[in-house]
Design a protein around this nucleic acid. Sequence first.
DNA 1: CAATTACTGTACCGCCAGTACAGTAATTTT
DNA 2: AAAATTACTGTACTGGCGGTACAGTAATTG
Lengths: 205, 205
Amino acid sequence: MGKSQNKREQILEIAERAVLAKGFGATSIEEIIAEAGITKSGFFYHFKDKNELALALINRYIDQDDALFDEIFNRADELSSDPLHSFLIGLKLLAEMLDNLPEGHPGCLVATFCYQERLFNKDVILRNKEGLLSWRTRFRGHFEKIAEKYPARDPVELDHLADMLSSTIEGGIVLSKAMGKPKTLSQQIMLMRSYVRLLFEPVPS
Amino acid sequence: MGKSQNKREQILEIAERAVLAKGFGATSIEEIIAEAGITKSGFFYHFKDKNELALALINRYIDQDDALFDEIFNRADELSSDPLHSFLIGLKLLAEMLDNLPEGHPGCLVATFCYQERLFNKDVILRNKEGLLSWRTRFRGHFEKIAEKYPARDPVELDHLADMLSSTIEGGIVLSKAMGKPKTLSQQIMLMRSYVRLLFEPVPS
DNA sequence: CAATTACTGTACCGCCAGTACAGTAATTTT
DNA sequence: AAAATTACTGTACTGGCGGTACAGTAATTG
């Protein structure tokens, strides 16, 4: 290879930060290449147009998030073999991890992209949707095992419950960012955890 | 007055739709004036720059949302004088109302703006934050009355619980838009309703 | 030694935000 | 009836950006 090989990765990092702070349309290629120290030709060597950058950004984001959820819930499974308590531990680990980000959560690309859908082609929109669906499948798996062992105190659809975690994270990020309070996100996750406990944990009779 | 008087309002309507579909930075003044049938000078007569448009948009959005919450929760108060049941009715009315929007919720300006903060000046950011804080105060009022009468089954902060409704709405809108399923939003609100019931409603011993 | 990778450099087009300022038709105030 | 205000139109310009095109090049790989 020519030189760095990681210039592409650097572009993605810079672009993600800029897109989360200003939106995709307002992020200029010029500012990205200025910060990355490359020329415009260098950028268009890696991405044939801005939409290809968007696709690479969302793919990267979803892959990273998947890896993070794997790590957290695998760790939780090591700490308890009970599906309910393992999931509750996972939510706590998630909340703690998010609380330890000094600047708060930087923002979710899925959320920004859904608020700028007119800017993207079908591939990007589809990948965004797939990310959400994969998280639904993942979390639904947890709730299926929980509901098998513990009867729910209120009849709820497991798909909706699975979506609730994605929704809580998305909503929590919006409140955190808009109010300038990083802790808000973890507080919302802990509230959802409280709901899961009330819904499934047997009353200590 | 010159002619229409409502051109300003028309600009705001067109701009809001465009901003929710493409982001603020990607919404050009040219397209707004083209759709409104005015000239660029006409636009700059009403708003001295794009930031003033942003401020007018967020003010309008928050005012409309406040009016909507007033209507729904006043109506709920007419249907039950009990604070818990009145709030549960309000959540149901809200979910039903959102379900009856044929195209789904168009999106929340507070959410888009928080994902594009670098584009706005302090006034806009502040107004965005104030909107969220006013909803916290509003919903906290409901939870205070509920908690006074019914002991919570889990020790939770009322501010967090109040934020949970804003968070549920924001998260639900993101999922609805990204997945192309308008019903997701009302489903999430009904899940929050289920939580409030489990948290406060006495068990029928 | 040839091909590939990862770029640089130069030059250009058309669109858009924003500025400036002069003009005007209708309405309201005095 | 005259003056002022409101709500615009019209024209003309600057500078920045997305995107295209294409030629060149230094390092690495097969």
